[in-house]
Design a protein around this nucleic acid. Sequence first.
DNA 1: TGGATGACCTACA
DNA 2: CTGTAGGCCATCC
Length: 125
Amino acid sequence: MTKKIKRKKKEQDKDFFDKVYGFVELIPYGKVTTYGALAEASGIKSSARTVGWAMNAAAGSNLPCHRVVNRNGELTGKLHFGDPNLMEDLLRSEGVAFTKEGNVVMSKHFWQPTNVAKKKLIRNN
DNA sequence: TGGATGACCTACA
DNA sequence: CTGTAGGCCATCC
């Protein structure tokens, strides 16, 4: 994220990026969330992709981007951290459990930004 | 204005 | 499990 284009919309004065960043900052220590959850929390549940975009823009920021994984618990964005092992390393240092495949154990560390009851629950494990 | 890209998700074969 | 296909939305060119 370098420059934000000027928006004429009053409500959209802030990009939804800011919302995503806000939620990312709220992710507790040792917890992780998913792009889809952040997307829904930001109001674009249908597009988890754009959340990934926000993360890409937030790369190098103070935001704990390493706590954001995909629905499967895979560290799909590890390659964007400079070092492929950095993301996993950070999570491990926070006490996050990993599977032998190198994925986060969502059932233990999944954190949901929204308290809204979801019909879709984690089917993992 | 429209195509291309992306740290995604779901469904299906 | 891998590959293909569609969709979703923001951004860049």
